[in-house]
Design a protein around this nucleic acid. Structure first.
Length: 702
DNA sequence: TTTAACAAATTTTTT
DNA sequence: ATTTGTTAAA
């Protein structure tokens, strides 16, 4: 099992006795180590289902499963490879009853959560609701419940939010629903308070591998500790330089504490990079250099110097997109390369990375104009689309009648003469009698608070839902599911609803297409026959529709086979972690974007500016190290900010890359430095950057 | 009371 | 440019 591994990798794979921490630098083959170690564990006699590998994203889990399958064959199927959250769902479905959670609980997406918090807060607007949601989530990730949050609250606002949190939690349990944070904190509670459950999981899982360990938060670490128990049979793989989820509660403390909590911890460092050229790696090392080191390591590459890193200055977002498209086309034609070597001519060899989702738009436009196929990953997911959320609302309500957010969505789509006034009264009625909205539909005293007409429409809706529910229980397998779904859509006349709601026929058609795709996907998931990678037909476990619906909230992507599409990738830096491309363009590397504006303390972010800067630097590092052969770094002279345009300054990280003078053709390093100094001076003088940009622009016009 | 049309305001990163 | 709150018509 150790063929093709270097010494350090072998060491990590073969150490099975106890806790093991693998410090894996970027591109050092950490997925390889994990998959080989899974194989090794099975080779030494463990059954596949005694091994678990936990990843951070669904995508990473999918890839891991793929790689494991390639290495050890069909046995990989039995290995539990999933995200922390998916593992949490599994635990709660199996043993959640011990916490008073019924098996058919709902998982709320973050929009649902915002809505509930808004309600729980009384008269709060959307923006503050989001802020509070953020803060509450932060508390939950630290393992605090509402009462504890109240106890540690500092200041009136914290106290108020803690009270809202208490009401929010009440509602969740009334709805029999959980949010994303609960998927970690509730299983943790389960393991803490129920010894039988804890022992069961400890006996089941003989070895747990954790990928991207640096991104775990406090509750995840506690959960891991309880899962592996005293014996501490686990392998944590991570890189402190790639920790970019601090804003989500991830903490490097977990890395620091590991050697203390497990004194027998075996430490292995992977320092050879197999991904990038020396030129790229040097830039990466220079950027990360100023950050304090938890475990010092020196990455090296044997792939040779390679192409110099390019810095490209652009006039605007549109200009940047055009230049980037031109660059991609040139590279595909074999131009721009100073040295011969393997060329990468497929669209899928190219990737454009940026800080924030909305930055994808200009690139999408330019790529479409140039007729280059592309995909946007890590943006708005398929399941965030309004039409899909409509359908999921119906299904969630079918699975869990107490799911009030789902009720509200379903009852109003399509419009059936029930509006907010009726729903408002229904809502107060329901909370008065401590019923869910759906339950109160059938209450006898409903007629005393609502006009007969409204009661009639509500009853009709309720009866229809019961009917749907009944049919869903008897619908098993892909073919039946498909018929069921299409019948349902016809009955509620959803297609008409889409065309009515959209003034552009094209958009409506696209939405309807999404709906059909969703039905297709749903029915496939219901099992029966499914084609696997090789096109062979594989029998999958058959599931009822209800079972499938429950897992939807966790998924972010619908296409399971996106790897083999030959398309250019657009992605956020965060979503790009763990991935690599021959040619990478980092877009919008400006002060204020990357690093993101660090100045204003809005009171939400408790971390110091220095800590936040360090995380931004790691983000830049992650971006640079995605590249295998060529890397271009763009910055904007003028960029849009809200409605108006402001002057752009190159990111300090560009200077920190310490590129060779002569490698910066378009924009010499000195020029960047001078420009930055100039802007800094102006800012100090109190001159608004905007007016400076105006002046520059006018100069150019002359 | 519902629904459609209109005005206003809002952009970090993900499960 | 999209999405939320507001107002007017049905």
């Amino acid at each position: 099992m150790s063929h093709g591994l270097n010494i350090a990798q072998q060491e990590a794979v073969n150490y099975l006795q106890g806790p093991c921490l693998v410090l894996a630098g970027a591109g050092s083959g950490k997925t390889r180590v994990i998959t080989h170690k899974i194989g090794r564990l099975i080779q030494t006699g463990l059954k596949p289902d005694q091994v678990a590998a936990i990843t951070f994203t669904n995508k990473a889990a999918a890839e891991m499963r793929e790689r494991a399958k390639a290495l050890i064959g069909r046995q990989a199927k039995g290995v539990l490879i999933c995200t922390f959250h998916a593992l949490g769902v599994r635990m709660l479905r199996q043993d959640g009853q011990a916490l008073g959670l019924k098996q058919q609980f709902s998982i709320l997406d973050s929009d649902d959560v915002t809505g509930i918090i808004k309600e729980a807060g009384g008269s709060t607007d959307m923006a503050t609701a989001r802020q509070w949601q953020w803060i509450i989530s932060g508390w939950k990730n630290k393992g605090l419940n509402a009462a504890q949050a109240q106890a540690q609250a500092s200041g009136d606002e914290d106290l108020l939010i803690a009270q809202v949190m208490a009401r929010y939690e009440e509602r969740l349990s009334a709805y029999q629903a959980v949010d994303f944070d609960d998927l970690i904190s509730l299983p943790l509670k389960l393991l803490q308070e129920h010894e039988d459950v804890r022992l069961k999981w400890q006996q089941t899982l003989h070895h747990v591998l954790v990928d991207e360990y640096q991104d775990t938060n406090a509750t995840q670490y506690e959960m891991l500790k309880l899962m592996v128990g005293e014996r501490g049979r686990f392998t944590a793989v991570g890189d402190d330089d790639q920790s970019i989820y601090g804003w989500r509660g991830a903490t490097l403390d977990n890395l620091k504490r590991l050697p203390q909590d497990f004194p027998t911890l075996k430490l292995v460092k992977l320092e050879q990079n197999y991904r990038s050229t020396s030129a790229i790696l040097r830039a990466a090392n220079n950027v990360i250099g100023p950050n304090p080191k938890l475990f010092p390591k020196t990455l090296f590459s044997e792939l040779g110097e390679g192409e110099p890193v390019r810095v490209i200055d652009c006039d605007s977002e549109e200009h940047e997109a055009d230049r980037t498209v031109a660059r991609i086309q040139s590279l595909r034609a074999g131009e721009l390369l100073t040295s011969a070597g393997a060329q990468f001519k497929d669209w899928k060899d190219f990737c454009i990375l940026y800080r924030a989702n909305h930055m994808a738009k200009p690139f999408e436009k330019a790529l479409r104009r140039a007729q280059i196929p592309y995909k946007v990953s890590g943006g708005q997911s398929f399941f965030d689309r309004a039409e899909i959320k409509d359908l999921c609302g119906w299904m969630r309500l079918m699975v869990n009648n107490n799911d009030d957010p789902a009720f509200l969505r379903a009852v109003t789509t399509p419009k059936r003469g029930i509006g907010h006034t009726t729903l408002g009264t229904l809502g107060t009625f329901a909370s008065q009698f401590k019923l869910s909205l759906f339950e109160s539909l059938f209450s006898n005293s409903l007629g005393s608070v609502l006009p007969a007409k409204a009661v009639g429409s509500l009853h009709e809706f309720g009866r229809y839902l019961n009917d749907l529910q009944y049919r869903a229980q008897h619908t098993i397998g892909a073919a039946a599911a498909k018929v069921y779904l299409l019948d349902w859509l016809k009955e509620i006349d959803y297609e008409k609803h889409l065309y009515d709601g959209e003034d552009s026929e094209k958009v409506a058609a696209a939405r309807w297409n999404n709906v059909l795709e969703f039905c297709d996907w749903m029915s496939k998931r219901c099992g029966g026959e499914i084609e696997d990678a090789s096109g062979a037909t594989v029998e999958k476990e058959r599931k009822t529709m209800l079972e499938v619906v429950q897992t939807i909230a966790l998924l972010s992507t619908i296409s399971e086979r996106e790897g083999d599409q030959d398309v250019v990738t657009l992605s956020t830096l965060h979503a790009a972690k763990g991935l690599e491309w021959p040619h990478v363009v980092l877009a919008g590397v400006n002060e204020g974007l990357l690093p993101f504006k660090l100045d204003d303390d809005d009171g939400i972010n408790t971390d110091s500016i220095e800590l936040r800067l360090q995380e931004e630097r790691r983000l830049m590092y992650v971006g640079i190290t995605r590249a295998q052969r060529t890397l271009a770094v763009n910055w904007l002279r003028r960029r849009k900010k809200g409605r108006d345009t402001i002057a752009g300054t190159p990111s300090r990280f560009i200077a920190e890359m310490a590129l060779d003078q002569n490698t910066i053709k378009q924009s010499p390093l000195e020029k960047i430095k001078a420009l930055r100094a100039e802007f800094a001076q102006r800012a100090a003088d109190g001159v608004k950057a905007q007016s400076l940009a105006e002046a520059q622009y006018n100069d150019k016009a002359k």
